[in-house]
Design a protein around this nucleic acid. Structure first.
Lengths: 337, 337
DNA sequence: CTCTGGCACTCTGTGTTCCCGAGTGCCAAG
DNA sequence: CTTGGCACTCGGGAACACAGAGTGCCAGAG
């Protein structure tokens, strides 16, 4: 159905179209790539490719443009992920290593991705549920008010003010603190609910009302923040590109956490690349854009995802290379901190 | 020089131009506003206004458009800040009250401002230096590694990992923690450096190397983060507007923390409005945009600033009303939490 | 059966011209 | 100082023609 030459033609069309942003015709193809055949032959192949929906022509007498299906074939079978240059790798490493806390790691990652790919970068904070407790802290603020601070092994810090049913003296707090940490330290966040359930029994009855309050806030923190935090950047890169769909829709989608979450998608394996091309993605406002995403994590556990969003007409090999590389480096940095 | 009627004409021009986005001519003015004079008279006034640089015409035979100077006069003398409706006030209140921690307060504020004004919202996190210490926490992570957590009275939490010169047992940490908090609790952040300097003397000599390390990180946290964190949102609102300068420049400026800082500007009094119109603002990429900003804070101390950025052609009275109202409410919320 | 050159055809984009209308500036009269 | 009248200017849209790129198809050659 699609012999080798037709595939080569498709590849050439994608590459040319990506670099020139203009529909590509048979003559131009014959000139720029030495396919060893005449324009007429290429025309026949193009007709076949169009027949099967891999390319299309904007108007009757214009060149061809790849369809989403065409890009899909290109990504799956015709392209090789392009690794970064040594200089780029070093730049990434030093740039990320300079980060001093989680916020800054994430912020720098966004910048990095945006700069490297010249697209919009999207980075999800390391998932709460997939990390473990490093420390729980109870900080007295007032008579009947404390702040609960939860620190995870990924460096993430969650805080919540708790209003207590009764006043709580220093020594009781210290005691509570050590009990809590004794139970929860190193505990997988997903198992916190069960672990927490067993705690009241370990305490004298008079502590239970207070503990119950604190517990409920703690659990609430975990549940509420289940919708993970996502940041993005590099929107300036959108200004140049022209989307089939309005710029407005894209910007709106970016500001919807929920949409972003779904865009980054569910995981494949760790640093496995997910590519969503145009209409493949789940949000109608983003027809005309593609997403390249990967999971990142320390060790073998995927903590969260990151990726870039750009016009369907993007340089997939380069973008994929950059996303993969950044995902790996971020994983390393997180593991090392 | 500028009699009352000329001022009325200028006001009418600004209002019409803002609402129609088209150069406004003498006839249209005479029709829509009942100024009680004929178009010809208005033309004379317009000529005078143009002479003095308050308005200008895009082409020889088009209507007039306000200049930056014209908007300035309008804002200073011809307009009244438009208060929000009761419904809007209530909406703000309930929306902000639902926030559970500082991050969420800021995030919601951004959304609110963007939605209310249909412009880009910019919000600065409560300044570190202008708040006070609520608690310092030292959390052991590993043998020779602790996490330093600093909580301010505005609910802001700063964290930093510290590598120690020697191992540190639980009881020593507890001791250190209480000493630190004893000295620093309630301490104005700007005075932390001096306060900290006196601490080593209060400790036995063998603790001093460890304390020195921790101190230096603590100070570093304060200094480094002196460049305050700023977030923005509502960029989708830029899509409709047409800037004289490219959209790209605006988006780029927004992603530069430093530029944003300078845009929000230095403070006037608390919830005093600052308006920067077009070329008045310090960044060349933002010619064609105006900034309306205000300080917010709890009590009488300004903690940080917030504002919106939009095309010079914006509805100043409404925008100013919204910014002022939001600034006040955020202040209240911060004070109450 | 596949490739190639030739040829007629079909579009889009661009440049030109033309004209309408909105809006102005100026002037003379009220 | 205000007003109506009038000639003038200029931008923007409509109509039109044209060149160029690209196609599809066909018949002939390997």
């Amino acid at each position: 159905m699609l012999d080798d030459r037709k595939l080569a033609v498709l590849r050439a069309i994608v590459e040319d179209y990506v670099s020139t942003n203009e529909p590509v015709g048979s003559k131009a193809l014959a000139d720029r790539h030495n396919l060893g055949v005449s324009p007429a032959t290429i025309r026949n192949d193009m007709a076949a490719l169009e027949e099967q929906g891999y390319i299309t022509q904007p108007h009757t007498s214009a060149g061809r443009v790849p369809t989403d299906k065409g890009y899909r074939l290109f990504v799956d079978r015709l392209s090789q992920i392009k690794p970064l240059s040594g200089a780029e790798r070093r730049a990434i490493e030093t740039f990320l290593a300079g980060a001093v806390d989680l916020d800054e790691i994430v912020m720098r990652t966004v910048r990095l991705l945006a700069q490297l790919t010249r697209q919009v970068a999207v980075v999800q904070y390391p998932s709460l549920t997939r990390s473990s407790v490093r420390h729980v802290e109870i900080v007295p603020l007032a008579e009947r008010r404390v702040m609960l601070v939860l620190i995870t092994n990924t460096g993430r810090v969650e805080q919540r003010v708790v209003d207590l049913p009764e006043a709580l003296a220093e020594d009781r707090i210290a005691n509570l603190r050590s009990v809590l940490n004794g139970c929860l330290d190193g505990c997988w966040l997903s198992q916190v609910p069960e672990t927490v359930a067993g705690i009241p029994e370990r305490l004298p009855p008079e502590e239970r009302p207070v503990v119950a309050t604190i517990m409920s806030v703690l659990l609430e923190t975990l549940v509420e923040r289940h919708e993970e935090k996502i940041v993005f950047g590099g929107t300036a890169n959108l200004a140049g590109a022209d989307f089939s769909v309005g710029l407005r829709d894209v910007l709106e989608a970016l500001e919807e956490q929920v949409v972003l979450m779904r865009l980054l998608g569910e995981t494949g394996g760790l640093s496995e690349l997910t590519v969503r091309i145009g209409s493949e993605n789940p949000y109608s406002g983003l027809r005309g854009t593609s997403i390249v995403a990967a999971g990142y994590g320390s060790g073998d556990k995927e903590l969260a995802r990151l990726g870039v969003l750009g016009p369907t007409r993007m340089d997939y090999p380069v973008t994929m290379g950059a996303v993969r590389a950044v995902a790996r480096y971020v994983g390393q940095i997180l593991a090392g901190s």
